[in-house]
């Protein structure tokens, strides 16, 4: 198979370049990450992140043939050649396919991604009804791979101010949690022309989420919650 991969080493390169590779996948190579791992044995200077290799850690998010995805979940079969691999768009490149996610996680931390409940804790645990727990489905599964935020034009335009689809999906995960008592504070924080309302409902986030989640739907629900809160 043929691959064309974005290469950039800040220590030696003035500007990035695309490097072509020819690779013969072996029988066990099913996913794009398998091919990249095999390529790494040929060219050990190629840098990319990976860890769990099964779509749980979100480390190997990259732009694959113009579309963000996880290398470990992308089948080799059906990939158009040459397979063009680039780092996540809109993120500063550290080296090759590795991007700097500092700002992405700063946005994530800004929405206080943990349960806030000032009431006296019960002896064992805060129970939820099945219906209350059901509301978290489609939200808690986010692995923070950044495929969505990196494919969002609103995030490209204002990466320092717009929280982005991943952060907003996580924000709604806690807003909709029956055990959380800080809904009003969370909504007040999000009621901002940049943090939430830069979303133009382009829906690239929902289109590329490798876990099949819908950040745009979560953003819409936050907007509805804001309207309900203020009416």
């Amino acid at each position: 198979m043929r691959l064309s991969i974005y290469r950039f080493n800040p220590e030696t390169d003035l500007k990035p370049r695309m490097q072509d590779y020819e690779l013969a996948p072996e029988a066990g190579d099913k996913k794009l990450l398998d091919a990249l791992m095999r390529l790494k044995t040929i060219d050990d200077s190629l840098s990319f992140r990976r860890s769990c290799r099964e779509g749980v850690c979100g480390s190997d998010a990259m732009n694959i043939n113009g579309r963000n995805g996880l290398a470990c979940l992308t089948p080799l079969v059906g990939l158009k050649e040459p397979v063009v691999l680039r780092p996540l768009p809109g993120f500063p490149v550290i080296r090759d396919l590795i991007v700097d996610m500092t700002q992405f996680f700063a946005h994530y931390h800004s929405i206080k991604p943990y349960l806030i409940n000032d009431t006296v804790p019960p002896e064992r645990e805060r129970l939820q009804s099945p219906a209350e727990r059901e509301k978290l489905n489609g939200l808690y599964e986010c692995i923070l791979c950044a495929c969505c935020s990196s494919f969002c034009p609103s995030f490209w335009w204002n990466p320092d101010k717009f929280i982005g689809p991943a952060g907003l999906l996580q924000a709604y995960r806690f807003i909709s949690d029956s055990r959380d008592t800080a809904t009003a504070e969370r909504l007040a924080y999000l009621d901002d022309v940049y943090r939430l309302f830069r979303c133009r409902t382009i829906m690239n986030c929902t289109e590329v989420c490798p876990k099949g989640l819908s950040p745009s739907h979560a953003i819409e629900r936050i907007r509805q919650a804001l309207v309900r809160e203020s009416s």
């Binding site: 009621d191 901002d192 022309v193 907007r223 309207v227």
Partner: peptide, 9 residues
């Protein structure tokens, strides 16, 4: 014209 008010308007 900030936040949700502009959006609702």
């Amino acid at each position: 014209f900030l936040g949700q008010r502009a959006w609702v308007l």
